[in-house]
Amino acid sequence: MSAEEKESSAGPPMPLSLARAGSRVRLVCVRAGRGLARRLADMGFVPGDEIQVVSNGVPGPLVVLVKGSRLVLGRGMAEKILVK
C-alpha cells in the first residue's frame, strides 16, 4: 500500500476518476460550480484530505473512503475532483 501511495502522490493533479482502485490520493481542488463544490466540501471533500479509492470500475460510479465513510461518487462528479 505504501508503494502505491508514493506512486500516486507524485506528478501533476489528475481527475479522481483516473485513480486506481486501492490507491490513496490527496484532494487538490474541485472544479465545479460553487453549489456543487460546496456540497462536496460538506461531504468531506476538502483540499488536502486523503481519499481512499475503494473501487473504480469503468463505466460506472466510484466508491471512495472519505472521513470515515464510504461514498458512491458518480463518474461525472469524480471527473471534476482533482487529486494528487
Partner: peptide
Amino acid sequence: GESTPFVMELP
C-alpha cells in the same frame, strides 16, 4: 440537462 451529480453514502 446534464445528468445530475451523484454522491451517496454506503453505510
